[in-house]
């Protein structure tokens, strides 16, 4: 983790990204540290999903480059990339009637050739993925009949079956309840510790991001404003700078990681007569 930048497998250099209009991301540099879980945070529209799409070569850079193992990712054969780098877009849609087992089996696509569609290693990878996500019992169920959390786990199983060392997740816990959010993030953490998978994910929940990521990348207006361990990044000043949010940052009573407590106009009415400004001042 302390290795120098040149040894990181996935890097972005002077990246400029756009959808045909003005650049969404411009001049961005990023090194994804090997073997860590990185969470990209930032307000809506700051370019974090766009960045993730570029890292996953879904979006070709207008300028600059994304490097995978030192080679430009958009010049590599997409199948080779897919053996190393997996990605899960935000709320993916499966065709109706597709079973979990079928979905997960499709994760083996980059390892198959047109003449060899099945092998025992495929079966093994699929079974392992199903077990790791706890989806073994649901293998024959149709995706559309699952709950949101199960569905998300099914998709993650697919990404696992792909057997990549790098995994990009775009808002993996959106639309899930808190219990399922925690469940998915625990799973992510386990993948990282047991399989050594390097993970980059876009998250909206700052507290969960701080607890589950080794490293936070805070973005605003297509720029990286801060990049480091949660404790360094998640400060009151940064929250103001990135989100325009007045908040207190206190230690998470469970994990000790930073926890964001927003200060809003509404909270003034409930602060036992203590003006908000004073609370903020004292905490600062």
């Amino acid at each position: 983790m302390t290795s120098s930048a040149s040894q990181q497998r996935l890097r972005a250099r002077q990246l400029r990204l756009s959808y045909g209009g003005p650049p969404v991301v411009d001049g961005l540099d990023l090194d994804v540290l090997n073997g860590t879980v990185t969470a990209v945070i930032g307000p809506n529209g700051c370019g974090k999903s766009t960045l993730l799409r570029a890292l996953g070569r879904l979006l070709a850079p207008k300028a600059g480059s994304v490097l995978l193992d030192g080679a430009r990712i958009d010049k590599m054969r997409t199948r080779e990339v897919a053996r190393v780098l997996g990605l899960l877009p935000q709320s993916p849609q499966a065709p109706e009637g597709l079973t979990v087992a079928d979905l997960v089996a499709r994760g083996r696509h980059p390892h198959q050739t047109w003449y060899r569609q099945w092998s025992s290693s495929d079966d093994e990878a699929i079974s392992t993925a199903l077990v790791q996500t706890g989806m073994g019992d649901y293998a024959e169920r149709a995706i559309d009949q699952l709950s949101g959390g199960q569905r998300q786990r099914a998709w993650i199983s697919m990404a696992l079956a792909q057997g990549t060392e790098l995994l990009l997740l775009d808002e993996p816990i959106t639309y899930l309840d808190l219990a399922h959010q925690v469940e998915i993030l625990d799973l992510v953490r386990r993948l990282n510790s047991e399989r050594g998978v390097t993970i980059v994910m876009v998250l909206h929940d700052l507290n969960l991001a701080a607890r589950y990521a080794d490293r936070l990348v805070a973005m605003r207006d297509g720029q990286v404003l801060a990049d480091g361990e949660p404790g360094e990044v998640l400060t009151e000043r940064l929250l103001d700078e990135v989100f325009g949010l007045k908040a207190m940052v206190v230690p998470d009573p469970v994990a000790g990681t930073p926890m964001v407590v927003p200060i809003s106009a509404h909270s003034a009415n409930h602060a036992d007569g203590e003006p908000v400004a004073e609370v903020a001042e004292r905490s600062a």
Binding site: Y19, V24, N44, G45, C46, G47, K48, S49, T50, R53, P89, Q90, S91, P92, Q93, D170, E171, T174, Y175, V202
Partner: peptide, 13 residues
Amino acid sequence: MTEREKPTAVGSS
């Protein structure tokens, strides 16, 4: 503003 982050429940993924 048009990034894919807004929750579009309707429409194509």
